[in-house]
C-alpha cells in the first residue's frame, strides 16, 4: 500500500532545545495515525513541519508524494490543518469565515459559497451560520475550525489536538466527524495527549517522547508489547509498597511498576482471574492493607508508563527519557 506521509530522519532544534531528534514513520493512505506524547514531546513540531509551516533542520518529509520543503505549494493544495487554537476570525460569522478560506483556496465566488453551505450543514452549524464566532461555544468553534480545514477537500488532514479542552459530549461529536472523514478515504494524522483518543481513532500509533519515536504499532501491538493482563492495586500505606511488590513476585509474569505518589502498583500476570484471587490471598497473608485492586487489560497508559517510566499527561518537568525506567516509575504521577 502506498504511503500518504513519509517521514525520515526529521530533526528540528529551537536554540538549544531539541524538539525532534530524527524521527521516522509512515502513514498509509486512508488510515489514521495517532501521534501520541506528552506536552513538549515534539507532536506539534512534527505537524507544523508536515503542514509546511516550519522548516526541518535535517531529514525529509514527503506528503502525498511532495517534499514539504521543496514543493510546499503542492503540499498545501492537498492538506487541511486544524491547530490547537480555533484558527478562525472572531468577528466574522461562520459563513464569512468559510467563504474567506474558500476564496483563499482559490474557489470561485459561487463555489466558495456553495462549499461553505455544505460544510455548515454537515457540521450542524447551519443555524449559527450568520452569527459571529464570538458567540459560539468551544465545541462549535472546533467544528467550524475543522470545517475550515476541509474547504479544499484535502486528501490528507492534520489535526493537532482536535479535542483538547472540549467537554465529553463535544469530544464524542468530534470523534464521529473524524471517523466519517476516514470512511470517505481521508488520511488523518492526529496528535493527542489522550490515550483513549488514540485508541478510539487511530489504526496506528506513534509514541513520541522528547523528540524521539519510542514506539510504534497498532494499539493492540503496543499493548501486547507491555504484556497481557495486569493487576492494578493501590495500597493504603506507602511503606507497604515494597512489601506488596515482594509478595506478588511469585505470580508476576514480568516486572512490577510502582507509582509511589499514587501508591499504585501494576503487576503483569498471565493467570487471568485466578491470579487476582492468588494476589488477594498473598497480600492478606502479608497483612498489607489495600484500597483497591483490579485485573485489567493494558491500556495505552500502561504502554506509556512502561516505555517512558512516566505517565503521559503530566510531564512538564525535565525527565531523562528513560527506556530503562521500567523498573520503578518516576514519582509524582497524578492519575
Amino acid at each position: 500500500m502506498s504511503s500518504a506521509i513519509e517521514v525520515s530522519g526529521l530533526t528540528k532544534h529551537f536554540g538549544s532545545v531539541k524538539a525532534l531528534n530524527g524521527i521516522n514513520f509512515e502513514v498509509e493512505q486512508g488510515s489514521v495515525l495517532g501521534l501520541l506524547g506528552p506536552n513538549g514531546s515534539g507532536k506539534t513540531t512534527t505537524v507544523r513541519i508536515l503542514a509546511t509551516l516550519l522548516k526541518p533542520d535535517s531529514g525529509k518529509a514527503v506528503v502525498s508524494g511532495f517534499d514539504v520543503v521543496e514543493q510546499h505549494d503542492e503540499v498545501r493544495a492537498v492538506i487541511g490543518l486544524t491547530g490547537q487554537y480555533a484558527a478562525v476570525d472572531e468577528y466574522l460569522t461562520g459563513r464569512e469565515n468559510l467563504e474567506l478560506f474558500g476564496r483563499l483556496f482559490h474557489l470561485s465566488k459561487k463555489n466558495a459559497a456553495k462549499r461553505a453551505d455544505e460544510l455548515l450543514e454537515r457540521f450542524d452549524l447551519s443555524d449559527a451560520a450568520d452569527r459571529g464566532i464570538k458567540g459560539y461555544s468551544g465545541g462549535m468553534r472546533r467544528r467550524l475550525d475543522l470545517a475550515a480545514s476541509l474547504i479544499g477537500q484535502p486528501s490528507i488532514l492534520f489535526l493537532d489536538e482536535p479535542t483538547t479542552g472540549l467537554d465529553p459530549r463535544s469530544r464524542l461529536g468530534m470523534w464521529e466527524v473524524i471517523n466519517d472523514l476516514v470512511k470517505d478515504g481521508t488520511t488523518v494524522l492526529l496528535t493527542t495527549q489522550y490515550l483513549e483518543e488514540a485508541d478510539q481513532l487511530a489504526s496506528k500509533i506513534v509514541v513520541l517522547d522528547h523528540g524521539n519515536v519510542i514506539a510504534q504499532g497498532t494499539s493492540d501491538e503496543l499493548k501486547t508489547s507491555v504484556g497481557g493482563d495486569r493487576i492494578e492495586l493501590v495500597v493504603a500505606k506507602s511503606q507497604d509498597l515494597a512489601n506488596a511488590v515482594n509478595s506478588l513476585t511469585a505470580i508476576a509474569s514480568g516486572e512490577a511498576v510502582t507509582d509511589v505518589v499514587a501508591r499504585r502498583i501494576l503487576v503483569p500476570v498471565s493467570g487471568g482471574s485466578t491470579s487476582i484471587v492468588e494476589a488477594v490471598r498473598r497480600l492478606d497473608e502479608s497483612k498489607i492493607e489495600i484500597e483497591d485492586i483490579a485485573l485489567r487489560r493494558p491500556t495505552l497508559d500502561d504502554v506509556f508508563l512502561s516505555l517512558t517510566g512516566h505517565i503521559a499527561e503530566e510531564v512538564t518537568e525535565e525527565v531523562p527519557a528513560g527506556r530503562g525506567g521500567r523498573r520503578s516509575a518516576k514519582s509524582g504521577g497524578k492519575k
Binding site: L53, D73, Y85, D89, E90, H106, G152
Partner: peptide, 17 residues
C-alpha cells in the same frame, strides 16, 4: 497568536496577500 495566520500559511495562497 490565534493561529489564523497558520491557517493562511497552510493555504495555497499568495504569500504576500
Amino acid at each position: 497568536n490565534r493561529g489564523i495566520m497558520d491557517r493562511f500559511r497552510s493555504l495555497p495562497m499568495h504569500p504576500g496577500a
